[in-house]
């Protein structure tokens, strides 16, 4: 029975490792300027974790194979080096690994979160609500009109609670259901939630950030590839959660200009 356990463990290990080694299950192609940091960190971690995983399972399997149901005469033996060897080994090896991962991981994190957006970044406001995202662009005046939460009304399409009569800044604001951005231009995303916790996740952009009610969060990123990508909510936000999504449309600058003009005319 012990030998069957060992063989099963080896088979499971191989079966688990093959899809990884075959590079079949990898994140979709990165389209951001910061994403390579995350991808590199991920593949580094994958190598270390993979080695640990395979080694641990294989050794476990080997020992089970060797030492299950032995003959009566066999003596109990000790692992060479004993506990102290293992403890020191674990401390040094795992400690180094932890330090390395932590250090490089922190650098990647810092590169994403501790750098301020550039001054000419395109500000886009995103509002999450049950169960849709709405995006707002400043329009020609370069200002967002103030939001009046009491004026938010889905039936009149006033998703942002804008006061068109009294706030001049609101008049040229463009509210869209799809997020359009120009390629290779930094975008500053101003995030707020209308009702409860949501999340903003674009796999290809390597960006994920929760919306916290009562907290205005900011993110900035640059998309480098034209295309249409999915924005999903990853926080369970109610019965319609599975349907809460929007699309990120990365366009060339002329396409974007045309698009924003068309959106403005629809307001």
């Amino acid at each position: 029975m012990g030998k069957i356990v060992a063989v099963t463990l080896v088979l499971i290990t191989i079966a688990s490792a093959v899809p990884i080694l075959a590079h079949k299950w990898v994140p979709p192609d990165d389209i951001s300027t910061h994403g390579y940091l995350i991808d590199e960190q991920m593949s580094d971690t994958m190598v270390e974790a993979g080695i640990c995983f395979v080694a641990a399972q294989m050794i476990l399997a080997a020992f089970i194979w060797m030492f299950s149901n032995r003959k009566p005469g066999d003596k109990i033996r000790n692992f060479p080096g004993g506990a102290m060897g293992l403890v020191i080994g674990a401390f040094v090896l795992v400690g180094l690994e932890v330090l390395a991962l932590g250090f490089f991981g922190s650098k990647a994190w810092a590169a994403i979160y501790f750098t301020p957006p550039s001054a000419d970044a395109l500000p886009v406001q995103v509002q999450a609500g049950q169960f849709a995202f709405y995006f707002r662009y400043q329009g020609p005046d370069g200002k967002f009109g103030p939001i009046h939460p009491d004026k938010i009304n889905e039936s009149t399409q006033n998703f942002y609670g804008l006061d068109m009569d009294d706030d001049p800044a609101s008049k040229d604001d463009i509210v869209t259901a799809e997020m359009g951005i120009p390629v290779n231009k930094e975008v500053r995303l101003l995030m707020h939630s209308k009702d409860l916790g949501h999340s903003f996740y674009v796999r290809e952009l390597r960006i994920q950030q929760d919306f916290v009610p009562g907290l205005d969060l900011q993110m900035h990123f640059t998309a480098t590839k034209v295309g249409r990508y999915e924005i999903v909510c990853t926080q369970l936000c109610g019965l319609g959660h599975y349907n809460m999504k929007a699309y990120l449309n990365v366009m060339s600058q002329p396409d974007y200009d045309a698009w924003i003009k068309q959106q403005a005319s629809m307001q």
Binding site: M1, G2, F63, F67, I76, R77, F91, V98
Partner: peptide, 28 residues
């Protein structure tokens, strides 16, 4: 960092479980 550091005691536990299997008389 402390999260990563938890790996160390967890690894030691695992290594001791596996290492003690060496030379044992495993009953299935």
């Amino acid at each position: 960092f402390p999260t990563l550091v938890i790996t160390i005691p967890a690894t030691i536990l695992t290594l001791i479980w596996i290492g003690s299997l060496y030379g044992s008389n495993l009953q299935i």
